[in-house]
Computed example of a mutant assay.
Amino acid sequence: MAIPSLPTEIWLEVFRYVDPADIWLSLQHVSKEFHACARDTMQAEVVPNFLISLSFTLGSGTRARWYDIRGSITLGFSSMSKHNPQYALFDKVHLLPESCSQRAWEKWNQICSAGVGESLDWRVALKDGPVRTVKMSKLIISHKHGAWCDWREMLDAYFKFPHVPARNPVWQRDLV
Rank of each mutant, 00 (worst) to 15 (best):
M1F: 14
M1V: 15
A2K: 15
P4L: 06
L6V: 05
P7M: 04
P7Q: 07
T8C: 09
W11H: 03
L12V: 07
E13D: 11
V14F: 02
V14R: 00
Y17H: 14
D19C: 05
D19P: 02
D22R: 03
D22V: 04
L25A: 05
L25N: 05
S26N: 09
L27W: 00
Q28L: 02
H29F: 09
S31N: 08
F34P: 01
T41Y: 01
T41N: 02
A44T: 15
E45A: 04
E45V: 01
E45T: 01
E45I: 00
F50D: 02
S53V: 09
S53R: 07
S53M: 08
T57P: 06
T57W: 10
L58Y: 02
L58R: 00
S60E: 15
G61W: 03
G61E: 10
R63W: 10
R63G: 11
A64D: 09
A64C: 13
A64P: 03
W66E: 12
D68A: 04
G71L: 07
G71V: 09
G76Q: 12
S81A: 14
S81P: 07
S81C: 13
K82H: 10
P85F: 06
P85K: 02
L89P: 06
H94A: 15
L95T: 08
P97Y: 00
P97A: 03
E98I: 04
S99D: 07
C100L: 10
R103L: 10
A104F: 05
A104C: 06
W108T: 01
Q110K: 11
G115E: 03
S119G: 13
S119H: 13
R123K: 14
V124K: 01
K127L: 12
V131E: 07
V131F: 05
V134K: 02
V134P: 01
K135Y: 12
K135I: 13
S137F: 10
S137P: 04
I140G: 04
I141P: 06
S142C: 10
H143W: 10
C149Y: 01
C149M: 13
C149F: 08
D150W: 03
W151M: 05
D156R: 01
D156P: 02
A157W: 01
F159S: 00
F159M: 02
F161V: 14
P162S: 11
H163V: 05
H163Q: 09
V164S: 08
V164K: 06
V170Q: 10
W171I: 02
W171C: 04
R173W: 15
D174T: 06
V176C: 13
